[in-house]
Simulated assay, not measured.
Amino acid sequence: MTTAEFKSSLAGAGPASGLRPPLAALWWAAKGNWARAHAIVQDEAGVDAAWVHAYLHRVERDPGNAGYWYRRAGQPVATGPVEAEWDRIVLALHRDEPT
């Protein structure tokens, strides 16, 4: 699935099957379902899930918790608009997808 297809899928009722958990969480976050997005990445291992987890706590306006997850992800703490960060994470995670 390309980044454009991923974004187009937001018109649907649910994410495409087979999405890695960090992307599925971002899908739910874009739909405004923070709790579902958080539940997906809460117990996931890996830097991608940690990055999405950081983003979600930033959306929640919990900078202390977000900072912890940014460190776990090896990412700098984001300071720009959360919408721009969502785009940046989606693009980065799609670059890592097998073709």
Rank of each mutant, 00 (worst) to 15 (best):
V41I: 10
G12N: 14
K7A: 06
M1K: 04
G14K: 12
A66D: 09
V47H: 07
V90D: 05
G32Y: 06
A50R: 01
R61K: 13
V47I: 06
D62Y: 07
N65A: 14
A49G: 06
W28K: 02
P22L: 06
S8N: 15
N33Q: 14
A13V: 04
V77E: 15
V77F: 05
V59H: 06
E97S: 10
I89Q: 10
I89N: 01
N33K: 13
L10S: 05
V82A: 10
H53G: 09
A92Q: 08
A29Y: 01
Q42F: 08
W86Y: 09
A24M: 07
L91H: 06
A39M: 11
P21V: 06
A66F: 10
A4P: 00
A45F: 04
E60T: 03
A54T: 05
G18Q: 13
D43Q: 14
V47G: 03
D87S: 13
K31E: 07
A49N: 03
P15N: 04
M1H: 10
G12L: 13
G32R: 07
V41P: 03
E44K: 07
W51L: 08
L23Y: 02
W27I: 05
G32L: 11
A73C: 07
R72D: 01
R72T: 01
Q42L: 13
V59S: 06
W34E: 09
G67K: 13
L56F: 09
I40N: 00
I89V: 15
R36A: 08
Y70V: 03
L23E: 03
A25N: 02
V77L: 08
D62C: 11
Q75G: 00
G14Q: 11
W69I: 04
A24Q: 11
K7N: 10
N65V: 15
L91D: 13
E85R: 11
G18S: 12
G74E: 09
W51K: 02
L91M: 04
M1L: 14
L91W: 00
Y55N: 02
W69E: 05
V52S: 03
Q75V: 04
A92C: 02
Y55F: 15
A4I: 12
V77T: 14
P81V: 00
S9H: 13
P15S: 07
A37D: 06
W27D: 01
D62R: 08
A73K: 02
A66E: 11
R20W: 01
E44F: 02
R88L: 08
P81W: 01
E85M: 08
A13K: 09
L93G: 01
G80E: 15
A13G: 00
A66V: 11
Q75W: 08
V90A: 06
V90N: 06
G14D: 03
P63G: 11
A73V: 05
S17T: 10
G32D: 07
E5D: 15
P21F: 08
A35D: 13
L26G: 04
F6H: 05
A16P: 08
R20L: 12
E85A: 07
D96E: 14
D48S: 10
E85L: 12
R72G: 00
A45P: 07
K7Q: 12
A92N: 05
G80C: 02
G67Y: 01
T79Q: 15
